[in-house]
Design a binder for these strands. Structure first.
Lengths: 123, 123
DNA sequence: TATAGTAATAGGAATTATTACTGATAAGGA
DNA sequence: TCCTTATCAGTAATAATTCCTATTACTATA
């Protein structure tokens, strides 16, 4: 993977912030340093960075994907009121410590990604 | 919430199948029984059924939302190869029994939804 | 330093999923 | 049965993302 100026700026932006951004927000931020970068370039690079494991995605209720430069395993909390995404380190599905901090949990979703038994056997 | 013919068909379709469908798939299925139902009606009813806790959603990598009539807490597994969504009952993040069945897990994502501390304090 | 081959880019058009709008319809209570 | 109002069908609009094309940058080799 070629480390282009554009890719470098996208990655360093995400790494510099401990927060979660969608493609357009990243586009706006990176545009301050590379004014003529295109949205397509942002999408393509985000895709490659995810593929490469340099960043991770957060899929939420609302239809846009958020990107996260912090890649250690962690749990995301989406506030239905302010739409902010919070990080929590807790493992497992015991979320008592999160509620103790004042968060109200309505629901939780766990999704695994990978290859199923049948597809594994085929290949 | 009024129990309309359309809503009833959508709900009974999802409850009758132990699988996961996106809005267009549900639209196609329900159209066999209500030929002139519109896609907008399907989306609106799915939204209300989710709001009401009658069904749940699965947010995956690909950009469409899947709906599930099985609402007991469970974990979803998305195959990157055949795109099928599988259900697993395991709690916690110990997914050994899933791997033991021949599934390869690349990554897992846990997302909580609710209200954050700050928003709770405001209201 | 040219040159060719490959990979990446900008910009915009196209695609896909979802939501919003409008006049007509029907669910459910009085 | 009648009335109110949520819901409906149909269609237009929006938003997020991907695709396409001409152009540019990088790399290795001569």
């Amino acid at each position: 993977m070629r480390l282009t100026h554009q890719r470098e700026e996208i990655l360093s932006f995400l790494r510099s912030k401990r927060a979660h951004y969608n493609a357009v927000e990243i586009y706006d931020a990176v545009r301050e340093r590379i004014p003529n970068i295109s949205l397509g370039t942002v999408y393509r690079n985000l895709g490659k960075l995810v593929e490469d494991g340099e960043i991770i995605t957060v899929e939420t209720d609302n239809r846009s994907i958020y990107y996260d430069g912090y890649i250690a395993p962690h749990t995301h909390f989406v506030c239905k009121c302010c739409s902010q995404i919070f990080d929590f380190e807790e493992e497992g599905q015991s979320f008592k410590s999160i509620s103790d901090k004042g968060f109200t949990i309505d629901k939780h979703r766990t999704v695994l990604y990978g290859t199923c038994t049948e597809c594994n056997e085929k290949n």
